[in-house]
């Protein structure tokens, strides 16, 4: 009955007031942080961006007209290869959890494993691919980077696929099966189709998430100051490693500026992906 003892209303209200103030402080400070980071990126990055910056390849310091086009191409190539490797198996795995493994014990364990896998530090995936791909093949390559990113994407796509398919109402499944469709056709043609926007959203978010990953690429794709010679057997230029290299290993103002410019481009790409997923999901909501 200790909880019922008399507490002065004044102190209760005071506590509540302090808590409200702290809440507002939390909201204001987090909004300020977001604004600050974006502001710094835009302020420092906007000056670097020009047509030459986007179309010339990166070159060692001292030569004028350096750009980042090789890194942009490399990042696009690595990310899309990763997506190409990862999407199909990850979606099949998600379908398994949503459609076949509903009440099975091992499905629960796999879901648990996928959630755990999402939290594994990306640098460890880099170490793993370094030993599993880079060392046996004898050289750093864009492909190794893509495989590392594919592994990071796998649980993300898998879990969103499962969540999105679980939202499809059961009577759609029953109706299609009653029409005599096989389970395969019902799953792919009816359930996946009605969850289409959600599935695309999951894939886009996974791409956005890995497009800025740096640590795994340090051990796999590395960097080179030229256009891609051979994606499968040569180090491949990419944006995150370019930023890391230019920001830490170079004392030159010019290179720091390039790093900010590259960050601005990455952030714009990620924002664009995020906005498009919101539009996709909103369309779906209106459609129902």
């Amino acid at each position: 009955m200790q909880n019922l003892k008399f507490k002065s209303l004044f102190f209760r209200k005071l506590k509540n007031g302090l808590f409200s103030i702290f809440s507002f402080f939390a909201v204001a400070s987090s909004l300020f942080l977001i604004g600050w980071i974006l502001f710094e990126i835009i302020k420092n990055g906007a000056g670097a961006i020009s047509w030459e910056f986007l179309t010339n390849p990166s070159i060692p310091y001292g030569i004028p007209d350096a750009g980042i086009s090789n890194a942009i191409i490399g990042t696009v190539l690595i990310t899309f290869t990763a997506a190409a490797i990862s999407i199909a198996p990850a979606m099949l795995a998600g379908i398994y959890l949503a459609e076949f493994g509903k009440n099975k014990k091992h499905a629960g364990a796999i879901r648990f494993g996928a959630n755990v896998m999402m939290g594994i530090p990306s640098i460890l995936v880099g170490l793993f691919i370094y030993m599993a791909v880079v060392v046996p093949s004898g050289n750093f390559s864009g492909l190794a980077g893509a495989i590392a990113l594919a592994i990071i994407m796998f649980p993300i796509i898998m879990r969103t696929t499962e969540d999105m398919m679980a939202m499809v109402p059961n009577h759609l499944r029953e109706a299609s099966l009653a029409l005599g469709m096989t389970k395969t056709r019902s799953t792919l043609g009816i359930v996946c189709r009605s969850a289409k926007n959600g599935l695309i959203t999951g894939i886009l978010l996974a791409i956005a998430r890995v497009s800025g990953e740096t640590a795994p690429l340090l051990f796999t794709a590395l960097f080179c100051d030229d256009y891609i010679q051979n994606f499968f057997s040569q180090p491949t230029a990419n944006m995150p490693v370019l930023i890391a290299e230019y920001a830490t290993n170079s004392p030159f103002e010019e290179m720091h500026k390039s790093a900010w410019g590259a960050s601005l481009i990455i952030i714009l790409a990620i924002l664009a992906i995020n906005v498009s997923t919101r539009i996709l999901l909103r369309e779906k909501k209106n459609g129902h």
Binding site: S30, I37, I41, E213, T214, A247, S263, N274, R278
Partner: peptide, 22 residues
Amino acid sequence: LAHAIDLLASIPSVIYGMWGLF
């Protein structure tokens, strides 16, 4: 507000690093 805070999660860590450094 929720979207704005989720935005913090989508900024790559290397950019946080650069922001921190400079």
